[in-house]
């Protein structure tokens, strides 16, 4: 069976490469982490399942290295970050972390990553080669989203329990400022000009916009899809187009995503997806957004032009994050 799968995968991959210019650098494969079935499922660009990569337990956040040869996966129940070889589609290494790693970010030189240890109230900097923890930043309880500044000198992290964004000086590992945001802050996205940091606040149903120059919240945006109430809306995942014109936000329990015009802060569309919309990623050509639905165990493909859902495809149990190799 395995060999058949591998053979199929090879054919599919060959097919992919053969189609030429439309597919740029990467393999265009779609990777979906599944918290409860302990696997990263790989789909081809036509959404056929290519492979299930067995990982350590509870895989969640995922990031490629710059060359897209490696995919890192934080595995919360085994306290590791697994390393997937993108060419082989297999886990080649597991790097130990503190308890319950959830979200992480790679350093600019790709030699280390900063990972939030959900059960230990700290951010750890882990050296990838040696697999050792080289820095510890105490945070509020349940740290989650992490993002680095362009120069790598500042790290921003949310604490879900303390309801704040910690501004951390990476040189000293010290928290230089706490920015109070909405309830249960989750994830970040940054505008391409680096001026604004957007943070999703799950339980206060809002996205707060932080002005990075002053480290203050300048806007609070709330999202209410038609037929829902504010309290039904639990924003979590975010991504932005490369030009920064549009932001895509998953709205959790309200089973929609919002496509937002970042300048005017207006919602261009609410798009119905699956149950508990969680993670989201955009294809390189930005024609397609893919959303993971944690409670319906599937992913939804959204056409960005028409801003309509195209189809939903079964994934593993409790899909968490999605990244596209392109």
């Amino acid at each position: 069976m395995k060999t058949i799968l591998a053979a199929l995968a090879a054919i599919v991959l060959a097919g992919l490469f053969a189609t030429g210019p439309a597919l740029a650098a990467g393999t265009n494969l779609i990777f979906v982490s599944n918290e409860k079935s302990n696997e990263v499922i790989v789909f081809d660009p036509n959404f056929n399942k290519v492979k299930s990569i067995a990982t350590s337990h509870r895989p969640r956040d995922m990031h490629f290295n710059k060359a897209h040869t490696l995919l890192y996966v934080a595995c919360g129940d085994d306290d590791t970050i697994d390393v997937i070889d993108v060419a082989k589609l297999a886990v080649i290494k597991s790097i130990p972390t503190g308890p319950s790693p959830e979200m992480f970010v790679l350093s600019g030189d790709e030699k280390s990553f900063y990972v939030s240890d959900e059960e230990d109230s700290r951010i750890e900097k882990i050296d990838i080669d040696s697999g050792t923890s080289v820095q510890d930043v105490p945070t509020g309880a349940e740290p989650e989203g992490v993002i680095l500044s362009e120069d790598g000198k500042t790290l921003y992290a949310t604490s879900e329990v303390a309801d704040m964004v910690h501004v951390i000086d990476t040189a000293t590992g010290a928290v230089t400022k706490n920015i109070v945001v909405g309830t249960r802050p989750r994830r970040f996205t940054m505008t391409p000009d680096g001026k604004e940091l957007w943070v999703s606040c799950e339980l206060s149903s809002e996205v707060d916009v932080i002005d990075r120059a002053t480290n203050t919240v300048t806007d609070q945006l709330t999202f209410v899809p038609p037929g829902f109430r504010e309290e039904d809306v639990t924003p979590v995942g975010m991504t932005m187009t490369k030009d920064g014109s549009k932001m895509i936000l998953t709205l959790g329990r309200s089973n929609h995503i919002a496509i937002v015009d970042t300048k005017s802060r207006k919602v261009l569309a609410y798009v119905l997806v699956g149950k508990r919309a969680w993670g989201v990623d955009l294809s390189a050509d930005e024609k397609t957004a893919i959303v993971t639905n944690g409670l319906s165990d599937d992913i939804t493909v959204v056409d960005m032009q028409s801003m309509k859902p195209i189809k939903s495809i079964p994934a593993g149990r409790t899909p968490h994050s999605v990244v596209i190799d392109d």
């Binding site: 945001v181 609070q220 899809p225």
Partner: peptide, 17 residues
């Protein structure tokens, strides 16, 4: 049309903070 409500920031501009 369905619009996002833009609210003034509350807690974060609290001078007491």
């Amino acid at each position: 049309s369905a619009e996002a409500k833009v609210k003034l920031p509350a807690a974060s501009t609290n001078p007491a903070l």
